[in-house]
Amino acid sequence: MAFVLELNGLTKHYGNIQALRQVSLEIPQGTVYGILGPNGSGKTTMLGLIMNILQPTGGSIRLFGEAPRADHRQKIGTLLETPNFYHYMNAVQNLQIAAAIKGVTNPDIDGVLEKVNLLQRKNSAFQTYSLGMKQRLAIASCLLGDPQVMVFDEPTNGLDPVGIAEIRDLIRRLAADGKTIIMASHLLDEVEKVCSHVAILKKGVLIAAGHVDEILAQDDLVEVSAANTPQLPELLKALPHCKQITAGDAGKWLLHFEQGTADLRSVNEYSFQQGIVLDHLLLKRRSLESKFIELTN
């Protein structure tokens, strides 16, 4: 499998602070790879190292199977942290500079502005834009030259709900076109909705990486209770597909099933067979947040 990006033991220190510790990761071509982690986990540092605006303390990076070069970066559309443009220039002038640096001849500037709904304001100075419009312009700049790889750091920052939905839709369309997208975010919902793969960083350490369904797999939870049955966990532990039983709120118990395997009728029947009359039976979806907190704590 061809890898767009390979990190090997990537490390970055800022004085005594270890921003990134021995991160090794491979990003296959054609995936939408989410980099997930709480604020300060090292997501932006990792992308900054990849894009050569930070110098690594240790480890190595390979882009397109080679040692990184400037012309590799020209082939990657990147939005890192904040939209960075010349404030006194308008959208077209800023994109012309970006295109010249990327080596894109005859850039379709109107086309990329149209894709991010910024065409009507193409002649307005960047300094007059709202945060959402600046973000859209940054994404338009990423689209110049139709690159096969894109790096987005918090791409929906500053956007309103409609803008967020539009950018998610755009990312999905780009992914459907076979482009590789590397997207850092602390928004779980965003990553779950658009990413095929995910890597989770915590305090600069890579704690998990792989297919999003594996890493962010959510258990089915069945909440049960019965009168005067402290032995309930012991009696129900043999329930088919039940992985674990934990204490819930107010004397209730939580039965953990693998995703999509919980069946309330079977639970009720089995409990009855064990001599337990349930007075509470509820199917709950485990939140993505709780899974994330479990992974990062």
Partner: peptide
């Protein structure tokens, strides 16, 4: 200093200029 104020020195490198360039 505009490049530093607007952080375009970073963006220019991200977009594909060599640092030396």
């Amino acid at each position: 200093t505009n490049e530093f104020t607007f952080r375009t020195h970073r963006q220019n490198i991200i977009d594909g200029l060599m640092r030396k360039q």
